[in-house]
Write a protein that binds this DNA or RNA. Structure first.
Lengths: 227, 227
DNA sequence: CCGATACTTCGCTCGCGGCCGAAGTAAATC
DNA sequence: GATTTACTTCGGCCGCGAGCGAAGTATCGG
């Protein structure tokens, strides 16, 4: 019962639909302008401005001024993880109706989740890497095996910045697939490598990803995954 | 930006100070009656009843009727983890003044965190086990080493239920110490064993723990930790 | 059966906070 | 310097929801 007020403060920030929409948009990992966030939230710019001011004061987002644009990003992985854990609780709640849309389909298929890959593609990668015993995923933690380190090295995934730390692979529950995908430092590095290799590309103005033809070949060759 | 409404719904439940207080009280891990929760939240029973109804509908808590009492518990570890992650974000926010109290001191010293041990004691255990290389803790995941499994076995910690899973040790950032303590299945099993050994005892009506004389001896002997 | 305890449901008040329109600042473009 | 774009601050409206008092429903003890 101590710092509960702090919790309530942060949670109530996330608890407003407009702000939740903005934060979810930022969960895509990119920095977005105030206007883009206004569109994402479905409110006017002046309302957005107020919301962003609050999120900034509470340090849930950070600000990068660039000319007349103001780019907002999530303040760090801890915020992303908080949002994920809330999502995780939300989807264990009472079942919902939710109308389908085309964008939803694309998001379901492949999207970024802060700094790593989610959706059918993300879950598929996790599943294949588990099957090959490149990673071991538990409920709350994950681990890269020696053969997995080897494999990732061959793929050109740069893990040098994390080498000191033996554990740095976090399973991240997927809200569409209800199965884990690979987050944490490994997930981020893997996603970055996939972008470098041009296996995946962002779909304009969304969190959704499209898989390129060379991506399909690569995924089949390296991961034995037909996407 | 899809299921953002769901996030907002859950977050706004946590975002009310009274409900946040209740949930934090339940973070102690025990089941509490509606009246106890009313006291913890500082509101009247009828207000509490309304709140608990909402938390129950959203499946953040579960209910056990027992005679004329109604015991509420957190719906599961996922809820505890969500609360922790929110706490984690809250304490990276702007610094706060918070008046000290005696209970705060005790909580700071040793307390339960859902199903494992937190506070100075929890952080100390994690630190000693890391130093002896019984566990390896990263930012987002942890791992028990073979020698650690051996050590826990000697201590009588029952991990049989989790043996299949190689990773099941979650670092849990401590809101008082700002350093990780051991959560997940290992943390829960370790805490349970400490209760069995009567090394620690709950302080009535709180999440705080007191260390018994035999606990001090045991901690010194097994963990090289003077508590 | 009676009173006490545990908890709920109902009806009401009231204040916080989200929302937008209007007006203001700041930076790029002409 | 004038215009457009990006974003902010101000002021006022309004609705949701937390809060309590009062009254109602279960379960215990005697």
């Amino acid at each position: 019962m101590p710092n509960a007020p702090h919790i309530a403060e942060v949670a109530s920030l996330v608890g407003d639909p407009a702000r939740a929409n903005m934060l979810c948009a930022l969960l895509g990992g990119r920095a977005l302008t105030a206007t883009e966030l206004a569109f994402a939230a479905g409110v006017t710019p002046q309302t957005t401005s107020g919301h962003l001011g609050k999120l900034f004061s509470a340090r849930l987002v950070v600000l990068m001024k660039q000319g007349r644009h103001r780019y907002y990003r999530l303040a760090g992985p801890h915020v992303a993880q908080m949002l994920e854990s809330i999502m995780n609780v939300a989807l264990t709640g009472p079942p919902r109706f939710q109308p389908k849309s085309k964008l939803d389909d694309k998001l379901r298929h492949a999207r970024t989740c802060y700094d790593h890959i989610a959706g059918v593609l993300g879950v598929g990668l996790a599943e294949r890497m588990s099957a090959h015993e490149f990673v071991v995923l538990g409920d709350e933690a994950g681990e890269v095996t020696p053969s997995g380190m080897d494999f990732l090295g061959k793929l050109g995934v740069d893990l040098s910045a994390y080498k000191k730390r033996r554990v740095f692979c976090r399973p991240c529950l997927d809200w569409t697939e209800r199965r884990p995908h690979i987050g944490g430092a490994v997930g981020a590095a893997l996603a970055q490598r996939c972008f470098e290799l041009k296996w995946i590309e962002r779909i304009r103005d969304t969190r959704a990803l499209s898989i390129t033809p060379s991506g399909r070949r690569g995924l089949l060759e390296f991961f034995d995954l037909s996407a």
